[in-house]
Amino acid sequence: MSHVFAHRGSSGTYPENTMLAFKKAEKTGCYGLEFDVHMTKDREVVVIHDETVNRTTNGRGAIKDLTLDEIKKLYIKSGWLRKEKIPSLDEVLEWAKSNEMLINIELKNDKIFYEGLEELVVQKVANHQLQDRIIYSTFNHESVKILKKITSCEVAALYSRKGINPVLLAQSLNADAIHANFRVMTPQLMRDCQQHGIPVRLYTLNKPALIQKWLNEGLSGVITDYPELAQKLKDKKE
């Protein structure tokens, strides 16, 4: 069965990776939520996509060079009157206790390797007792190996380059699933994964025709900026 994951929340309509986007995603009835995490200078974990705050906030600087307090003083740049802030992972996990969504935490440690990020994130999830609702994913394949050693949660290998065999990638890393850019996946590669029992989730599926195509192929997860649209297409197909 295919499931819909809200990519950075309902980010096609609301400011990405904010509590507003996450709460709006929940209201769509979608199965899961996907978001990104980085580590701050004082070893806290915050939910943001980029390595810097430059694009999405009114501030400047790398996450690794800013403390949580400094980050919390910033506001998300958006057209909304409500001033959203960068949430901490603890904030999102605490809110997640109020619903039943599956949570895909992407560790953004492929461009900057945050020493100990894997252990810190896994511990925070354990502190909130949400282990049974977590999928970890990362482009850093060494990080996949670390996660597989320290958690029983599902761990997915992310990739976005053509020419990679997803079955061999999953097998070489002992990954539980594959998360791939839809542009590098083919129906045959997906069938190969399915034959080996490897779930495939594709990002970022936003156009109705693309969503419908991959739903018809039986992919495990639609990762989309528009969860309401994807959920309606999924419900119609079923």
Rank of each mutant, 00 (worst) to 15 (best):
N99T: 15
R161K: 13
D176K: 03
D65F: 10
T18E: 11
S152D: 14
V46T: 01
E44A: 10
N140W: 09
T56R: 06
S220Q: 11
Y226L: 06
R82L: 10
V200S: 11
Q123K: 14
G9Y: 04
E70K: 14
A230R: 02
W214I: 05
H7I: 05
D132V: 02
F182S: 15
G197L: 12
K85R: 11
H38C: 06
L66H: 02
A25W: 06
I146C: 05
V144H: 10
L229C: 10
K24D: 05
R55Q: 08
S2Y: 07
I76P: 07
G9Q: 03
Q231Y: 02
R201K: 13
L169E: 06
K41A: 09
Q171K: 15
H7K: 02
R60S: 13
Q194G: 07
T224R: 06
L219H: 13
V92G: 03
D90H: 09
E44Q: 14
W95F: 02
L210S: 15
Q194T: 14
M1W: 11
E228D: 15
D192F: 04
D90A: 08
V155A: 04
L130V: 00
I150L: 00
G59R: 12
H38F: 06
E217A: 10
I178F: 10
V144M: 11
V222M: 09
N58G: 13
A6T: 04
K124L: 09
Q231V: 08
I112D: 09
T67A: 12
H128S: 01
E44P: 06
W95E: 04
L68I: 14
C153Q: 05
I135N: 12
Y114F: 11
Q171A: 08
L68C: 13
K232H: 05
G61T: 03
T224A: 04
V222T: 13
H128R: 07
L74T: 08
K213I: 11
K27L: 01
T57D: 14
A96K: 08
R43M: 12
H49Q: 03
M1E: 12
Q129E: 14
